[in-house]
């Protein structure tokens, strides 16, 4: 189950339809072997979140996801008491004549009334396998949460005042992602293995699209990827990621396109570019030029570009 070498990681990822380069495979392999969190940064849409999903598949374990946002607190990240049931329970105890405060307290603050949020869930291995914990878009959380996380990552235990300390017997496999809308503190990043996911090369991106959308004709796929690659050389506010390439491929398939042409590009450019300024800039003449280049490149045999 645990991969024994970097090449094994690469193979396993490929089986799960994730095309990674050797750098990422090395980082994943070492993160698993050293029991360190994997910290993934990169532009939006390059497949950071996907790594965690594939890892969970690959290790045949559960994926627990914590989506970060500003103000994320213990109540929604770690645990919460089920207040409605607690109140009912108090009433029921009362009705049965229970008056002892200590006993009531013991009853209603017991694990049965505890709602486990992702971080607490992640401390528990199901059927002997630690889960994969995805902490997604950590840059969106605030510093208070970051500080809490730093503590958790170092000792893997959580204290619930009413119950006691919960400790992970086997720490989860942790994947943290960030889109860099804010700098994450170095102290946290140093605890992790850091990997920057870049936009893929032409050949690699073709492989990715083929792995994800095998029904797309090869010729179209190469044209699409070549066009997106050209687009990434432009000076745009937001460059299209691999996610956009995949969306566009799906869109063009739905439109029954077998080939790129200027009209369909202008109509569907909004799938690739998410800012109106960018769309206006590219639409028309520039798109034409890119298309010409892309068609040429798509025809070239691999490795000649």
């Amino acid at each position: 189950m645990f991969p024994r070498s970097i090449d094994e990681v690469m193979e396993a990822l490929k089986v799960h339809r994730y095309i990674a380069d050797r750098g990422l495979a090395t980082a994943i392999f070492l993160a698993l072997r050293l029991g360190r969190p994997l910290f993934l940064e990169g532009e939006p849409g390059v497949g950071k979140t996907e790594v965690a999903k594939v890892l969970a598949d690959l290790l045949r374990t559960e994926l627990i996801r914590l989506q970060c946002y500003e103000g994320l607190d213990v109540h929604s990240a770690v645990y919460e008491w089920d207040y409605a049931r607690q109140i009912l329970q108090i009433r029921m105890l009362e009705a049965s004549g229970e008056r002892d405060e200590v006993r009531i307290r013991q009853q209603i603050f017991s694990p049965a009334f505890l709602i486990k949020r992702p971080l607490l869930q992640a401390l528990e291995a199901k059927n002997g396998r630690p889960p994969v914990l995805l902490i997604d878009e950590l840059d969106r959380a605030d510093e208070e949460f970051e500080a809490f996380l730093l503590e958790l990552l170092s000792d893997w235990q959580i204290t619930i005042p009413e119950i006691g300390t919960v400790r992970a017997e086997q720490p989860p496999v942790v994947v943290i992602t960030s889109n860099r809308t804010r700098e994450i503190h170095d102290a946290l990043k140093r605890r992790c293995l850091y990997f920057w996911i870049d936009y893929p090369s032409f050949e690699k991106e073709v492989q990715i699209v083929r792995a994800r959308i095998p029904e797309a004709p090869e010729r179209l796929t190469r044209q699409i990827v070549a066009f997106v690659q050209e687009l990434r050389r432009l000076d745009l506010y937001k460059l299209p990621g691999v996610a956009e390439t995949l969306d566009w491929t799906a869109a063009l398939l739905a439109l029954d396109q077998t080939e790129l042409d200027p009209a369909v590009i202008d109509e569907t450019l909004g799938v690739l570019l998410k800012y109106q300024d960018d769309v206006l800039k590219v639409r028309g003449e520039i798109a034409q030029d890119l298309l010409t280049k892309a068609l040429l490149r798509a025809e070239m045999p691999s490795g000649n570009y």
Binding site: I6, A27, L30, L34, K189, Y194
Partner: peptide
Amino acid sequence: WIPLGDREAFYHAARCTLICR
């Protein structure tokens, strides 16, 4: 965990452990 002599793996290992920015 890295095979001796695998320079590429050594490079990636050093990169992901030493660099965090």
